[in-house]
């Protein structure tokens, strides 16, 4: 069984001449009568009756003209029926295709297409796309439309092209110029059969608007202007400056801005633009002074509100237009400068007494007007209360002696006016005269009622008229005496060393040994604050120790004593910032480091006479120098300044006393009193307060270090997890005297095992080579080892040492401190062999030796 268009007919034609177009036949007809029937569209469905069948012969005829655009094909269902009307066969389909003829022209979707394009657009820029349809058979030549521009207005030169297949209109070139033609009209034809001569056509119109761009440079109507103005006058419309611009009117491409290039430094002028006319109005907003500026040249330029188009931006050159301004002199008359003047008049002044002179100034010459007295200017009194004064040529005199009645009516004060008049110019200026009346007494103020003689101090604008009464002279003498006392006061303040004296004068801490103060004592600090010992920098001392073990409360004593012992010689000390450094006086650069120095400690150090500015500067320099050595080196690798306090303490990693709870406490009895006390603290026992500082330092007996302080020490290293012992942080610092100061180093965890902190601090010199050795420290836990080595051994091979027996499967706490006595024979190393099954080991070794050449050594096996 196969299906195909079995038959075809052409639309628009009479196909009856080819009837019958088909016939059906069933073999059943050989045995019985068969009736053939057809059904479907065009038969028993609209359009009816297109096809009919001869029921006997099965011949199918077409009866009328068909339209493909109405019914592109027909499906005729054919049946064979017996006499009872029953189907003898399964129905068959006969498909009849209607063949297309080009009976439909193209139709544009719009009568007039509207488009727009910027002038100066590049060639082949898409402007618009036309749309037209054809009702003939799709994908048939009869419906294939070809577009063509058949007319253009203006027709100077073709400016557009059209794609014959897609209908896209594009620019032919980049010569579109709105200033030449702002509108184009195209007539476009669409023809089917791909534009063939036998095709059908339709036409449409396209209207293309050319958009403006700022491709015209504005210019002024005139190349120069000359104007004349009077001085001291304002003008709202001094000059109209018209701007010529060819771009689209009222657009930003056309609107101009006139601006001053030079000449208006005094801000006398402004230019206001009229956006409707593109005319600028030059205004005088600040009066010109002929005496100051007689002529000036304004250089102005013009531009548009909008930026210039890229096509001309390279052509733009600022054109300067000159406006020559001539300032005319105006005779201004005179003016009182200042506008008022105060005189003192007392009761003893007689009639015709000259009170003073009050002259107006001629504005043209700047001179007092008495130069022209009786010639150009005359003076008269204006407001003259009680008619007290007379003026002549600026000289003010008393008409009569001021009486007590006048004094009372004037309420002790006279205020009048004087006029300076230039008759020919008809200009007048006014000055105010104020007189203070002194030496008058009302009935209640009469001197007979007072035992004290009144003091009259009259000061007039004329310095020659200064009068002092006896009491005034006395006041002056008192003033001189006070001034004389000042040097004596300064001298007495300068002796700031006197206790309690010189309040307000703070001695500058400049490394005086006496500046080591009482806080450097052994004992706990209030509030459990970690002590920070800041070095005292002796003048000219280049040796700086940057590390101090502050794990013990006697660190302070250590530092202070050491500095006393060392005196002015090779002096080494340390400084460790557990919480970072930051003070208000610190440079900004320092504030990049997190954390702050705890204020208490800083204050203590400052109070102790430390040069904090030096310390801050020094550490900042160190930090940046270290970071600058290698750009890839994180700056936080250098200065071990951290601030993790408050975010979790690594207490469990470095000797928190909590782990002691599970232990046999008896061993604590064998420890030194300090450790024992700390253990008591940890166990919640009642303890005595800390003892006073030990005056016999350095100690001759071993004293345990406070585990809590060790804990704080470790908290200064962020690499130690507060919860999980997985990081080993070891810092070693050895500071021999002489150049080459070693910096604190942060050693990455070589094994990833837990929580071993080793600190060494040596503040000595000589050949001392202390060392700390750890062997197989995997899985160590909670071991605090402290060794302190102190002694002024000269030239001896002093090695700080601490040997710890095997800790495999042992207890978790070993606290050992050994003090190396001066001159004693010392083992060579500090060794902790195989602390397996342990974690959280803190070892602190300090060797203090005032000899040179000491080298710190610390080794850890892999």
């Amino acid at each position: 069984e196969w299906i195909k268009f079995a038959a075809a007919c052409r639309e628009g034609e009479d196909n009856s001449k080819r009837n019958p177009i088909a016939k059906i036949h069933s073999d059943c007809a050989a045995n019985q009568p068969v009736t053939y029937r057809i059904s479907g569209v065009g038969i028993d469905q609209p359009p009816y009756g297109i096809f009919i069948i001869n029921q006997k012969t099965g011949e199918i005829n077409i009866t009328s003209i068909v339209d493909r655009e109405v019914t592109p094909f027909f499906i005729i269902y054919c049946r064979a029926l017996n006499a009872q009307g029953q189907d003898l066969e399964n129905p068959l389909e006969l498909r009849v295709r209607v063949m297309d003829i080009n009976d439909n022209p193209p139709v544009f979707s719009m009568t007039t297409f509207l488009g727009q394009i910027e002038e100066n657009s590049n060639a082949n820029t898409l402007v618009m796309k036309l749309n037209a349809t054809d009702a003939d058979e799709p994908n048939n030549l009869n419906s294939m439309i070809a577009f063509k521009i058949i007319r253009q207005e203006p027709s100077d030169s073709p400016m557009f092209t059209i794609n014959r297949k897609t209908g896209e209109i594009r620019t032919m070139n980049n010569f579109l110029d709105r200033e030449q033609y702002s509108q184009y009209s195209l007539v476009v034809r669409g023809s089917d059969r791909d534009g063939g001569a036998d095709g059908m056509s339709a036409e449409s119109e396209c209207s293309i608007t050319i958009l403006d761009v700022n491709d015209n440079i504005p210019y002024l109507e005139q190349s120069s202007y000359d104007i004349t103005i009077e001085e001291n006058t304002l003008h709202s419309q001094l000059l109209q400056i018209r701007v010529i611009d060819l771009d689209e009117e009222f657009s930003d491409n056309w609107k101009a801005i006139i601006f001053f290039i030079s000449g208006n430094e005094g801000n006398w002028f402004e230019i206001e633009m009229n956006e409707r006319t593109n005319v600028g109005t030059l205004k005088v907003v600040k009066p010109l002074d002929y005496e100051a500026v007689k002529n000036l040249q304004l250089c102005i330029g013009v531009r548009n509100v909008a930026e210039f188009h890229q096509s001309i931006i390279s052509q733009y050159r600022l054109t300067v237009t000159l406006i020559t301004v001539t300032v005319l002199n105006v005779v201004k008359g005179c003016v009182f400068q200042p506008g008022s003047k105060t005189f003192i008049v007392d009761s003893r002044m007689e009639a015709n007494h000259t009170v003073g002179e009050f002259l107006a100034t001629d504005c043209e010459t700047g001179q007092a007007t008495n130069k022209f007295k009786n010639v150009r200017y005359r003076y008269v009194m204006g407001n003259n209360p009680e008619n007290l004064l007379v003026v002549d040529s600026g000289i003010i005199t008393l008409r009569n002696r001021v009486t007590m009645e006048q004094y009372e009516r004037l309420n002790k004060r006279y205020e009048g006016t004087v006029l300076s008049i230039h008759d020919s110019l008809q200009r007048t200026c006014t000055g105010t005269i104020i007189m203070v009346l002194c030496g008058f007494w009302t009935t209640t103020e009469h001197p007979t009622t007072s035992t004290e003689k009144p003091v009259t101090l009259s000061i007039t604008p004329n310095v020659d008229n200064v009068h002092f009464g006896p009491a005034g002279i006395g006041l002056l003498i008192m003033g001189f005496l006070v001034l004389g006392l000042v040097p004596f006061l300064l001298i007495s303040c300068d002796c700031g060393g006197a206790p309690g004296g010189g309040a307000g004068f703070e001695p500058v801490p400049e490394c005086s040994d006496g500046a080591i103060h009482t806080w450097a004592v052994e004992g706990p600090q209030p509030g459990g604050i970690t002590t920070i010992c800041v070095p005292q920098m002796p003048p000219g001392n280049a040796n700086v120790i940057e590390y101090i073990d502050n794990s013990g409360v006697y660190t302070n004593e250590y530092c202070g004593r050491e500095m006393q012992d060392l005196g002015g010689g090779e002096r080494t000390t340390g400084f460790e910032l557990m919480d970072g450094v930051k003070t208000s006086a610190a440079p900004e650069i320092c504030q990049e480091y997190s954390g702050t120095l705890r204020r208490n400690s800083m204050r203590e150090c400052r109070d102790g006479g430390l040069n904090m500015n030096f310390m801050e500067s020094y550490f900042c320099q160190k930090a940046y120098a270290y970071a600058d050595e290698d750009e890839g080196r994180p700056s936080n690798d250098c200065l071990l300044i951290y601030d993790i306090e408050g975010v979790g303490s690594p207490a469990g990693s470095v000797g928190c006393c909590s782990f002691i709870e599970d232990l046999d406490e008896s061993f604590l009895d064998t420890l030194g009193p300090k450790f024992k006390k700390l253990a008591d603290i940890s166990l919640g026992k009642e303890i005595d307060s800390y003892p006073d500082p030990d005056p016999s330092w350095p100690p001759q007996s071993t004293e345990p270090i406070c585990p809590q302080h060790m804990e704080q020490l470790a908290s200064g290293h962020p690499s130690i997890s507060p919860h999980f012992g997985k990081t080993t942080v070891i810092s070693e610092n050895a500071y021999p005297s002489g150049p080459g100061v070693q910096h604190p180093m942060l050693i990455p965890d070589p094994l990833g095992y837990g929580n071993i902190t080793v600190r060494e601090s040596y503040t000595t010199s000589g050949t001392l080579k202390p060392s700390v050795h750890f062997h197989d420290n995997q899985q160590a836990s909670n071991v605090v080892v402290t060794e302190r080595v102190v002694g002024p051994i000269s030239g001896a091979d002093l090695h700080g040492m601490l040997e710890i027996p095997a800790l495999r499967d042992g207890t978790n706490v070993i606290v050992t401190e050994r003090v190396i006595a001066p001159g004693s024979s010392l083992p060579n190393s500090l060794t902790i062999p195989n602390p397996r099954e342990t974690s959280n080991v803190v070892v602190t070794e300090r060797v203090i030796q005032p000899t040179s050449g000491m080298i710190g050594n610390l080794s850890i096996p892999p």
Partner: peptide, 26 residues
């Protein structure tokens, strides 16, 4: 057999042929 034949008109020589384009067998 039930079949449909269509007429093939040869315009050149005016002859007419019938082609069975659809048939089905029982």
């Amino acid at each position: 057999e039930f079949q449909i034949q269509v007429r093939d008109h040869n315009a050149k020589n005016g002859t007419i042929k019938w082609h069975s384009i659809r048939r089905q067998k029982r």
